[in-house]
Design a protein around this nucleic acid. Sequence first.
DNA 1: CGTTACCTTGAATCTCCTCAATACACGTGG
DNA 2: CCACGTGTATTGAGGAGATTCAAGGTAACG
Lengths: 259, 259
Amino acid sequence: MATKSSGASLVDEDKQTITTPCTKCPIRTLGTFREFTPEELAFVQKFKVGELMVKAGSHVFLEGHDSAHLFSVLHGWVLRYKVLESGRRQVLNFAVRGDFLGLQSVIFDKMLHSAQALSDVRLCVFSRERVWELYERHAGLAFDMTWIASREESMIADHLVAVGQQPALQRIAYILLCIFDRARRAGMLQGRRLNIPITQEHIADTMGLSVVHTNKSIRTLRERGLIDWRRNTLTLLDDVKLAELASFTSTEQRVRPFI
Amino acid sequence: MATKSSGASLVDEDKQTITTPCTKCPIRTLGTFREFTPEELAFVQKFKVGELMVKAGSHVFLEGHDSAHLFSVLHGWVLRYKVLESGRRQVLNFAVRGDFLGLQSVIFDKMLHSAQALSDVRLCVFSRERVWELYERHAGLAFDMTWIASREESMIADHLVAVGQQPALQRIAYILLCIFDRARRAGMLQGRRLNIPITQEHIADTMGLSVVHTNKSIRTLRERGLIDWRRNTLTLLDDVKLAELASFTSTEQRVRPFI
DNA sequence: CGTTACCTTGAATCTCCTCAATACACGTGG
DNA sequence: CCACGTGTATTGAGGAGATTCAAGGTAACG
């Protein structure tokens, strides 16, 4: 099955860990989600099929395939991307704890992009079959689904603006701030330091640049004392100057409650 | 009010024309929408506030403002775009008959992009206040809202791939095919010829290129006999070669029923 | 008949890309 | 413990592709 690449396993089936009940869902404590009504919470619990572990490098789903499930990220980093016939890859964005994956499969029957685990990832798995029930019985959750889709659109639109209209240095500044912003919301930030499984090649493929030029731009940012990036640790040294450079506006304001 | 720039007027208020009843909505005959149930049709009729005429060059709504209404395009071309502090503009896409505008205002309370009429435009206007009723009482329409948002996301993602990963000539080929594709679905195509109010500058701002280089790329496409573009008439001379160049896959398959 | 908006073309320049070589960290097996 | 392979980061050099500047050209409009 497309959703079960090598490295993926349903945790509750394997009895490796106990599936978290939705009432104690760790991502609901992030403070970025709205409160569910008891009825909604009960439904979400039914909606949830289990949890899925995906090893770093494995895929959650592939472009062109249908996915039997919907996912939300409980832990780890996931890469959403598309590939061209030429072999070139465009990264759409990086999903972290609290982000939703696979909504497109509900809408279009098949995924229009791929999702790959960058680190070991833990996912919450929802039943695609029950989606209709969600729309029929829980207007609030139905609205949340639209909210998720609309937020994804606005994020990708922001990327398009950066890629289409900004020179390399500004693009890099923009995407790094994006990553910091998402990590902050997901509670993955340790002060100004962030541990990421993201490579410079990922950044290059996100912003439509070559690896070489990406590397040189990052070096410039480092030399200017705006960031530091060694091994897997990215440090934000001057958020003001970086934001100034990127003309970046946080998506924080767009954070609204959902599953 | 932000939604009423100069040039905009509510047709039914002005008694200039009779507002079309939803039962006889012209865009429902396009063959690309699903059938409504009688209940849905009755609700949509209530949901519809009236019709709005917007003169070429005027705005439907502006980035940063809230919009009291939702719109669907009945006639004409609408440009969706964002601007940077630097003054540079990124066009998100071109909306035609059947396309929905302003969904973001429901989700985020304010628009994250602007919408400008490229030609004289006729819009169907919906009540933002009734959206909640839509979600509570009409699961099918609620699903359609998610569908609309998700389709917009996938379209913008496709643009991002083209802008991020393709050289100029391929980008131009891609966007022209996109425009033809949308025009075809909207029934605006006369054989292989299409009348568009789009300028080369619009194309440039869509694909992240300068006007000069856009012009040269278009000339190349013309010299190769793939297209012709004179005055406001764009002609598709060799769709196969153009699609080959753009590695374009039609979004036709993604067309599903909605308001 | 002048103004405006858009298209066209050439020339100089610069950003970014490709190629190529090296460096470094890490894991693996001998 | 070291040799080796792999994946990632780094750096230099040369060139392609896109940008900017600048100057016309054409059609539409009042």
